[in-house]
């Protein structure tokens, strides 16, 4: 175990002890170990450096390393907690944990706010919402006129921007999602509750007996 960990630490910058990560997250020790197997696979798919770069993240999500997607880029940026252009193992597990059914609602609301605050200004601005709408229209088959897009933006800001200053702050966002709980559905991935049985496709090699977390 000690040998395994020191080797992992050498090969995977940002590797953290599964017991420690399990204590910080809703994942069990064996689930963190399973996530490490997944992490090893993704992080070696383009450059075998023990870290996930943006290209590898896109490849894992879309099976296409060149595909551009605004939301995938934004999720990558949020997973890249240290802002080094790569995701290390510890941040991978802690970031995925936000999507765990047992993660706190506050963490989910906070993450979703950051996800939509594209420029990181501390506000969700109208131009950012428009950018996201246009991005999703480009991705999907949906076609909406400029006038319709502006109508949707007007409706959104009349509901969410309570103080009518043209941007949504975190408190307004918290109140908005409490009135629209369906918006938080995308922040929970039910299968994270039991990843070792739901996703048997990735190799699982537990060397630690599970402890209650």
């Amino acid at each position: 175990m000690g040998c395994f960990q020191s080797k992992a630490r050498r090969q995977y910058p940002g590797y953290e002890d599964p017991v420690n990560l399990a204590s910080q997250t809703a994942f069990s020790v064996s689930e963190v170990e399973a996530l490490f197997e997944l992490f090893k696979s993704i992080s070696s798919s383009v450059v075998d450096d023990g870290l996930i770069n943006k290209e590898e993240f896109h490849l894992a999500l879309f099976k296409n390393r060149k595909r551009e997607n605004l939301f995938a880029n934004r999720i990558f940026d949020l997973f890249d907690v240290k802002q080094k252009g790569v995701i290390d193992f510890g941040d991978f597990v802690r970031s995925l944990n936000v999507f765990h059914p047992n993660a706190s609602h506050e963490d989910k609301v906070d993450f979703s706010f950051k996800l939509y605050d594209l420029d990181g200004t501390g506000f969700i601005e109208r131009k950012e919402v428009k950018q996201m709408l246009i991005a999703l229209l480009c991705e999907s088959e949906m076609r909406l006129s400029d006038e319709t897009i502006e109508m949707i933006l007007d409706k959104t800001f009349s509901e969410a921007d309570v103080n009518q200053d043209g941007k949504i702050d975190k408190l307004e966002w918290q109140e908005f999602v409490s009135r629209n709980p369906s918006l938080m559905k995308i922040m929970t991935l039910p299968y994270l509750r039991d990843i070792t049985t739901t996703f048997p496709s990735f190799v699982f090699n537990s060397e630690v007996e599970d402890i209650a977390t």
């Binding site: 939301f71 995925l96 496709s201």
Partner: peptide
């Protein structure tokens, strides 16, 4: 439901072509 009857975030969360579950299909 017509898109114009929804707010932007409803549309975004409905249409977001991003499924993190694909990560586990690696």
């Amino acid at each position: 439901e017509q898109p114009t009857s929804m707010n932007a975030f409803e549309l975004i969360s409905m249409s977001q072509g991003l499924n993190l579950g694909n990560l586990f299909d690696h």
